[in-house]
Simulated scan of single mutants.
Amino acid sequence: MKLHLQRPGDQNQITSYAPGELRINDNVYQRSLIVAPRWMQADWAPQTFEELQSDSFAEIIQHRPEIVLLGTGRRLRFPAPAVLGQLRATGSGIEVMDTTSACRTYNILMGEDRDIVAALLMIELA
């Protein structure tokens, strides 16, 4: 489990992550989610990598962030180009990484006041 110093304010910060669990501020989540500094979508529809579809990113597309992090679970896996097609068309930068790396990167970029969104598949239980 990773712990991060919590910043004051009303931003959504990932304070810990472990297989089967993400903690954002004081709330624990056990399902995939989308998080941005000032909004989030709990219980994001794809719960596994195999369930990712192009329409999985509709909420993110509406916000048109500068950077989108896709956390693919326990290990790094790249979705088919068609899955990310609509998201790429918005001009957002897209980084695909395992969920642990995506959580760390999200907190760093959020601390730099970047326009960031992280779409995080849950880290699978071993």
Score class of each variant (00 low, 15 high):
M1A: 12
M1C: 07
K2P: 03
L3A: 11
L3V: 11
H4K: 12
L5K: 13
R7G: 09
R7C: 10
R7I: 08
R7F: 09
P8S: 13
G9K: 02
Q13H: 06
I14A: 06
S16M: 11
Y17Q: 00
A18R: 15
G20W: 01
E21Q: 14
L22W: 04
R23W: 10
R23E: 12
N27H: 13
V28E: 12
Q30P: 08
Q30Y: 11
R31P: 04
I34V: 15
I34R: 05
V35L: 00
A36E: 10
R38K: 13
R38F: 14
Q41C: 10
A42E: 15
W44N: 07
A45D: 13
A45R: 14
A45W: 10
A45L: 14
T48G: 03
T48K: 08
E50K: 12
E50P: 07
L52Y: 01
Q53F: 05
S54N: 15
S56V: 00
A58E: 14
E59V: 13
I60T: 03
R64G: 07
P65H: 06
P65C: 10
I67Q: 11
I67A: 05
V68S: 08
V68Y: 05
L69C: 05
L70Y: 08
L70N: 04
L70I: 13
G71P: 01
G71N: 07
T72I: 00
L76M: 13
R77F: 00
F78E: 02
P81K: 06
V83P: 09
G85P: 02
R88K: 14
T90R: 02
G91W: 06
G93M: 14
E95V: 09
V96G: 01
V96C: 06
V96H: 04
M97P: 01
D98E: 05
C103W: 03
R104Q: 10
N107C: 09
I108M: 12
I108L: 15
I108W: 10
L109K: 08
M110V: 11
G111V: 07
E112C: 10
D113R: 15
R114F: 04
R114Y: 07
I116R: 02
A118S: 03
I123H: 01
A126S: 12
